[in-house]
Structures are given as C-alpha cells and as structure tokens.
Computed example of a mutant assay.
Amino acid sequence: MFIVFAIILMILVVFMAIYFYKFYKNEYKLTDSKIKKSVMIFTGFTLIGIMIRGVVTGIIVFIILFFSTLLFNGLGKYFKGIKLADFSLILGILLTGIIILVGVFTAYDVKQTSYSITTDKMEEGEKLSIAMIADVHLGVSITSINIEKYAKEIEKQKPDIVLLVGDIFDDSTKKEEMEKTSIILGDIKSTYGTYYVYGNHDTAPHNMFSELNEDMVLDNLLKNGINVINDETVLIDDWFYLVGRNDISIDNNRESFHNLIKDIDLSKPVIVLDHQPLELDVLADKGVDLALSGHTHNDQIFPGNLIVGLIYNNSYGLKTIGDFNSVVTSGIGTWGTPIRLGTISEYVLIELIGRSEK
C-alpha cells in the first residue's frame, strides 16, 4: 500500500514539476536561471521534509509549496500593483510553513469524541461504557509516552471495556516501543478488560524491513492481558457479544460473518470490531447493534476526506441504519506523516444505553 501510494505521489510531483516549468516560463517570461533557482528551492524543501519525517512529508511539502506559489502568482496577475508575482516564491514558502505548522499542531492535539447510542436489547437506563482506540500507527505522531497520557485519561472515565480496533502499531514501529505500549494498554483498568483486532499495519505483513512480526506482536499483547479476537465471537459476562474480524487486507478469505454469529443469541447486544468499515448493510441486516472501525483516518488531509466519503458507506463518525449503528474513528495517530489538515486526532468514548425494557 505504501509503495503504491509513494509511486502515485511521485508521478504527481513529476507532472507538477513539468507544469511548473512550462507555466512559469510561458506565462511570466521567466529566465531559465530564475526557473532553475525556483526548482532548486522546491527540491531543497522537499528533501528537507523527506530527511526530517520521510517521503510522505517531503511530497506533502512539495505539493503545498507548489500550489501556494501558484496561488500568489495567480493573484499577482489580477493585482499587478502589489507585485505579488515578484515575491510569489517567498510568500509560498511562508504560507507552506504556516500550513505545515497548523497540520502538525492538529495531529498532536488529540480530542476526546463521545457518542451516546441506544438499543432495545438492554434494560431501560442500563449502560455499557466503551473506550475505543484505533490507528495509533505508533511512532509516526504518537509514542508510548503519549499513549500513557491518553490511557490515564481513558481510565478516569471508568470504562466497562476497552476496544483496540487495529493499526495500533505500524510497519515502522520499533520493537521496544511496541513492548512498552502493550504494557500501557494492558494496564488500563476496566470492568471487562481490553480486546484487540488487527489492522492492515499491526504486524507489518507487507514490510520485510519492519522490526515487528505477527508472533512477536501477538505474544506481547497476550502476556499483557490484551485479548486478541480475529474472526472470533466472545460472550462477555452473559450480557453482550464481541465479534472480532480479521482485517480483510490480511485475510481475503476471512470467515463469513454469518458463520461467526450463527450460534449466538441475537436478543443480546452484538458489537462488531472490524478495522475497515465494511459490509455495514450486511451487519445491519444480521441484527448487529454496533460496529466499530478505523482505517480511513477521515483521509487525514483535506480535501481527501471528501473523496474517502465516496469509498466507504461510513468514512467517519456515527451512521445509523435502522437499529444498527456504525462508529468510525479518524484515529488517535497519523499515518505516513505527523500532519493533519481538516480532520482531527481522537480517541472515542461510547455509551450504549438501553432505551426500553426487553
């Protein structure tokens, strides 16, 4: 996935560079020396971004700088008295810096998002308090130190159960950080413990250079009291069911949802954990009360969140289909780069509340 993403962005950068050259030379009659100077500056800032935070950051810097410079050049055509075009590159650099700083601040400014959802499968007034974390991508913007802080915040809310919905770890996560974070997450106090489903990055299935592997991650989770439920159904305290799904990008032949719930009592609340928000209509039809997912990041950077909304039935937030509810989080961390624009970093608290007598 990362390789495909990087190739697409690099192709985009090449086309933008060609356009940049032709547009500037023909539209503004710039000399070759000025163009070369601009290209060198663009390349320099891109390389700085790559060296500081990797390829994705470098490419994002290039794209923002390109369009910022283009913006001031365009404004310069209509406000010639201000001579914006003469300083377009400097102004573009300043605007890029501001945008990047805002993006970094937004990525690190983790919010608490709360939802209240009702079900007729619980006694009126009965409550189940759920804490949900997904998409930490440990090491990109969030470290074990940050996780310890948010774990304490969550524990103060006295949740009944803690649900970890994939991509807590990342291909680039260091083994030591994974071990520390497993301890922290396993230590969160709740009534029914902590449950975990894998995302598409947790065990670094597509990265031969990662320090992590499935056996290592699984061993650390289990020894710290974290229950891993992939394609498994668990009845909690004879009260409600958890159905954990294998991430579809890891297992294309994962167990059918029908088989996972064929023997359960559907008069009890059913909560599905699936890293990617898939098959929502199927879940609604099968009598599921709540599905929890992440993965989308709400696409992390605007305007991508407008596009991801066309791909998934629910790309972010709460969506209700009859008595079925889907909650998709944008994630507590970020992927690829510690930048968010037009989206938020969050952990989620959900209260499932009985709305009438059984």
Rank of each mutant, 00 (worst) to 15 (best):
12 L>T: 02
30 L>I: 05
340 R>D: 00
99 I>R: 01
343 T>D: 07
170 D>W: 11
198 Y>K: 09
284 A>N: 11
345 S>V: 02
188 I>S: 00
49 G>W: 12
148 E>K: 14
117 I>Y: 00
342 G>L: 03
52 I>P: 07
31 T>L: 09
41 I>H: 08
296 T>W: 12
36 K>D: 10
30 L>C: 05
168 I>G: 03
348 V>Q: 01
224 N>H: 14
348 V>D: 03
25 K>G: 01
69 T>A: 04
350 I>Y: 08
216 M>D: 10
210 S>E: 15
274 D>H: 04
19 Y>M: 06
192 Y>N: 02
331 G>D: 04
351 E>H: 12
74 G>T: 10
142 I>D: 13
204 A>P: 15
105 F>N: 12
183 I>S: 00
241 Y>K: 06
62 F>K: 14
39 V>C: 13
334 T>L: 14
139 G>R: 02
266 L>C: 08
239 W>Y: 11
257 F>M: 08
228 V>I: 14
3 I>K: 11
102 V>D: 13
338 P>V: 10
155 E>F: 09
73 N>S: 09
224 N>E: 06
95 L>V: 15
55 V>H: 06
290 L>F: 05
323 D>N: 10
66 F>G: 03
279 E>S: 04
344 I>F: 02
137 H>Q: 10
145 I>S: 06
146 N>M: 11
8 I>P: 05
146 N>I: 02
